[in-house]
Amino acid sequence: MSSSASSSTWKMEKVTGSHLFRIADYSLAKGMMGVGKPIRSATFNVAGFNWTLACFLDGQDEHCAGWMSLVLRLETDAVPVRALLKLSLLDPQRSCPFTRTIIDVFAKQHSGRGIGKFIRRADFETSQFLRDDCFAVHCAVTVVKSPLLEVPATDPVLPPPPSDLHQHLANLLASGEGADVTFDVGGQTFAAHRWLLAARSPVFRAELFGEMRETRMKQIKLEDMEAAVSRFCSRIDGARQSL
Rank of each mutant, 00 (worst) to 15 (best):
G34Q: 07
G36M: 11
P38C: 12
P38L: 11
I39K: 11
I39C: 05
I39M: 09
R40Q: 09
R40M: 06
S41N: 12
T43E: 15
F44L: 02
V46Q: 12
V46S: 05
A47R: 09
G48C: 08
G48E: 04
G48P: 12
F49A: 05
F49C: 10
W51M: 04
W51P: 05
W51Q: 00
T52K: 07
T52R: 06
C55Y: 15
F56D: 02
F56Y: 15
D58Y: 00
G59S: 10
G59L: 07
Q60C: 05
H63N: 14
H63Q: 14
H63F: 12
C64A: 15
C64R: 13
A65E: 08
W67F: 14
W67A: 04
V71Q: 11
V71G: 03
R73Y: 07
R73P: 01
R73F: 13
L74W: 03
L74F: 04
E75A: 09
T76R: 08
A78Y: 09
V79Y: 04
V81C: 06
R82D: 04
R82Y: 01
R82V: 11
L84A: 13
L85I: 15
L85A: 05
S88L: 02
S88A: 14
L89A: 04
L90W: 04
D91M: 09
D91K: 03
P92K: 01
Q93E: 03
S95I: 15
S95K: 13
C96H: 14
C96F: 13
P97G: 11
T99L: 02
T99E: 06
T99W: 00
